[in-house]
């Protein structure tokens, strides 16, 4: 009975720990200096400027990936239009993901995406376009981009 108790305990602890998932933010989406009236596009392929998330968890498990995307960069009282096109996202679940040539490319960040974690998890890249007005007030603008992932059970 004692063995049964230990076995049951270990099973559930292992089950619980193997299902854990984490998101690591590797890079913000950085537009840098922008000129008033000049749209600026950050490609998802641009390391150090495109947004980059890493999701770790159980190898082979399917996860749903959903962005909550802003439509504006803001600072107090003013904003800049922010656009995400339906090809601005890419995913790579290979052990050594390649941002310049991701395994799954031109994905729609407005849709819920379903992909399986690899041995090293999964890396997500996101680009975008900011469109400042000609008379855009100078200064620093920001917006939050939220990524929600969850196991689908598949």
């Amino acid at each position: 009975m004692r063995r049964l108790f230990i076995g049951v305990t270990l099973f559930f602890l292992i089950a619980a720990s193997s299902a854990a998932q984490t998101i690591t933010v590797n890079n913000n989406l950085v537009f840098g200096d922008m000129f008033p009236g000049v749209p600026n596009t950050i490609s998802k392929y641009t390391a150090g400027a495109a947004a980059e998330f890493h999701v770790s968890g159980t190898n082979g498990a399917e996860i749903s990936i959903q962005f909550t995307l802003p439509t504006k960069l803001t600072k107090i009282g003013v904003s800049i239009q922010l656009i995400f096109f339906d090809t601005d996202c890419a995913i790579d679940h290979r052990p050594n993901p390649d941002q310049s040539s991701p395994l799954f490319d031109n994905l729609d960040p407005w849709s819920t995406l379903l992909y399986r974690l690899g041995v090293q998890g999964l890396t997500i890249y996101l680009g975008g376009t900011a469109v400042p007005r000609i008379v855009q007030p100078p200064g620093a603008y920001t917006a939050d981009i939220t990524l929600t992932v969850a196991y689908t059970g598949a």
């Binding site: 089950a15 619980a16 720990s17 299902a19 854990a20 989406l29 900011a130 981009i145 969850a150």
Partner: peptide
């Protein structure tokens, strides 16, 4: 353990910032 399993498979959220600096 039963209570632990649902918490482990619940969703995870990561937030980044989009940033830009507009010049004069």
């Amino acid at each position: 353990a039963v209570f632990m399993v649902p918490s482990a498979i619940s969703q995870e959220i990561g937030i980044i910032q989009a940033t830009a600096t507009v010049i004069s």
